[in-house]
Write a protein that binds this DNA or RNA. Structure first.
Lengths: 244, 244
DNA sequence: GTGCAAGGTACAGACCTTGTACCTTTGTAG
DNA sequence: CTACAAAGGTACAAGGTCTGTACCTTGCAC
């Protein structure tokens, strides 16, 4: 009738959770995570379970752990994970476009609903994230503001499922700005967000959906150029099957 | 920084898996599941784990278990789960529209991509499911054909994420045809599918998306009437907090 | 060089999952 | 009406996972 089912271990769940926070930019390179005991309590798990998850992230090159006073768990520059992600996008056929197509489905509808349902408070929240985006002076700040913009849009759409799915899907992509030196794509991206915002503000559902589609297609183009560049900035994997 | 994380037990995962098969119509009222030993092997789990999951489904009124020769696990008429689902949709504010909105986002994009990418084989597969739909003579057959239509569309869209998400979301709704005696909504539904199919066949992406949107809005209307009817066909729960 | 705030390690108890063996119920063939 | 076979029902021991608790080690700051 059907095939296998399995459970994840707590360690895996926690590792995924933390990885997602990093991918979404909630914590970025150089940041320190809370102390183990504290974080374990926040997550409602035993310290050992957390430690195992951190071990995984350490092996994957997401964090490094230092002992002693001023010790703790610090997010790395993410070179290794980015290289592995890039190798995977090149290797696994269709994966890249699959994610982008999915995002388009989710986010165009989100934009549409947001345009129909947004309150003045929603608009204010979105405005703030766009302002943050404009003044962002480094990758981490930019990425975080970007995530927050899409999240505030999803909140304005009043759809918890869209909200959750948008976030999950964003977490599957490293943001452009982790892959490139912090340069020109930025202005285009800021403009895109502005266009979406204006349409949502006006309450023009079709324009909002169209603007969002354009924005994500721009992202597709940018990312594709980086992922499939023949001149690779790859610090690690050659092109082989480093896929986990 | 964030809140709790947990794992599911195998029992929960298996129960969800089986519940989903029932919701999707892969097995319907009166059907018998494979014998415990056999099913456990298919799923790659111990018999005890499966038994615990079946116990859950039994308590929830999805299946009944009979002993002896000709014994086994049989899917019920689903009255209790449907009543509980209905109570929940009435009670949890916004849940109902949340699910429908999400479906619209997923399935309009699916239709759009399917129209752009479908091969002759895809069209043939879709045609088959529509034919099944037309000649379906009972709830179960209808529901299964309906699920299959949407699945074949998602396959034509060549997007594994959309495919998976469409299926998951469909599993969150009991199909209309479990909620009503088998009557008039059917013809409208068949026509809707036909319209979507024609647009996909023609390769008209906008028409396909629009047709799908209309179809799901029709479903919303139908379902809403049933869920929020003041004259309840409720065989079980009054209207109270039977929500699990 | 002492204090202290981290991470590192160890261990026992509770719970989950598995594999295996055996018992009970019940329809039906002979 | 008896015996068989095909199901579910029960029991148990071994191994894995998660938790709580206690204690050790490292290395910065004063």
């Amino acid at each position: 009738m059907s095939n296998g089912v399995t459970t994840q271990t707590l360690t895996e769940v926690v590792a995924d959770h933390l990885r997602r926070l990093i991918h979404l930019g909630e914590v970025g390179p150089g940041d320190r995570l809370p102390a183990e005991r504290e974080l374990a309590e926040q997550l409602g798990i035993a310290r050992l379970s957390l430690r195992e998850a951190l071990k995984t992230l350490q092996n994957d090159g997401y964090v490094e752990v230092r002992r002693g006073a001023r010790g703790g768990t610090y997010v790395t520059e993410l070179e290794a994970p980015v290289a592995r992600w890039r190798a995977r996008m090149r290797t696994v056929s269709g994966e890249f476009d699959d994610i982008i197509d999915f995002r388009i489905g989710l986010e165009t509808e989100t934009a549409r609903l947001a345009a129909a349902r947004r309150t003045p408070e929603d608009l204010a929240a979105m405005r703030t994230t766009i302002d943050d985006l404009t003044v962002a002076h480094d990758r981490t700040a930019f990425r975080l503001a970007d995530s927050r913009f899409h999240a505030s849009l999803a909140r304005a759409a009043r759809s918890s499922r869209l909200c959750a799915a948008v976030e999950s899907t964003r977490a599957e992509l490293f943001n452009t700005h982790d892959l490139l030196p912090f340069i020109d794509p930025v202005q285009e991206s800021v403009d895109d967000h502005e266009v979406v915002f204006r349409a949502v503000e006006k309450g023009d559902v079709d324009a909002a959906a169209a603007a969002m589609r354009d924005h994500i297609e721009h992202t597709r183009t940018q990312l594709r150029a980086i992922v499939f560049a023949t001149d690779p900035p790859s610090p690690d994997a050659p092109g082989a099957t480093t896929v986990s």
